[in-house]
Structure formats: C-alpha cells, structure tokens
Amino acid sequence: MERIPILQMGQFLLVTIQVDMHDRLALALQDDLTNRIVKTQAQGVLIDISALEIVDSFIGRILGNIATMSRILDADTVVVGMQPAVAITLVELGLSLTGVRTAINVEQGMALLRSPFGASPEERDTHAQT
C-alpha cells in the first residue's frame, strides 16, 4: 500500500503530500506520523499541502486531527502552502482548523518553527515591542 513519506530534517519532521489524499492514505499518515514523532522526539512538524487540490470534510478533519495530535506529543505543527480553493472549501465546511498554525510556503513555515516566539501574531507583536 502506498504511503506518504515522512522526512526528518534535524529536529523537525517534513511531510509533503504530493498525491491526492484518499481516506485510507490519510489514516495511514496519521498513524505513521504519530509513531515517528514519538520515535524521533521531533520538536516540530511541517506539513506541505501545496499539491493538494481537492479536500473533503473527512480529509479536512484528519488534517486538523493530525495537527492536534502532534501538539499533544509536544511537537509544533505548521501546515503550509494551502491552495485558495482548498482554503475556501474548508471554511465553507466549517473546518477553520483553529489552533493549527499556517504559513504561505515551506520557507516561512520553517522560519515559524524555528522562531521561539512564533506562536501567534499577538505574541510576536509583544515580542517586537520589547
């Protein structure tokens, strides 16, 4: 069965979804990723979905779940490169993925993971003021 590769870059894990997600693939990714986080003691996870063109409510929910699970395992999660159509679909489905951090591309996503104050814009504002 095909699987989505999980790459390790130092203390971060990198997941690049290059194929259209189907339900079993998403569930397999959820399994693999949680296992890898525990095994590698990763501090951050970056999920690149820039090639993902189609989402349904299930995939949307799994994406949110994966991010929440990673956070419970003490790894920051950033979802990067979401396509406009995907963003609109998720919002219309009522899945705003609150609590999941997002970035426009992989570069900024990595910067967000590395920055110690990157939790939210407000915290960055306070950081900038001090």
Binding site: G81, M82, V91, S96, T102
Partner: peptide
C-alpha cells in the same frame, strides 16, 4: 470572518 479564516488557513494574518 470567513475571508479572514480562509486567509489564515493559507498562512496569512
């Protein structure tokens, strides 16, 4: 709010 949420999903404040 929908517009804001969609922009946030793409990684933009």
């Amino acid at each position: 709010l929908k517009t804001v949420a969609a922009a946030r999903l793409m990684g933009t404040d």
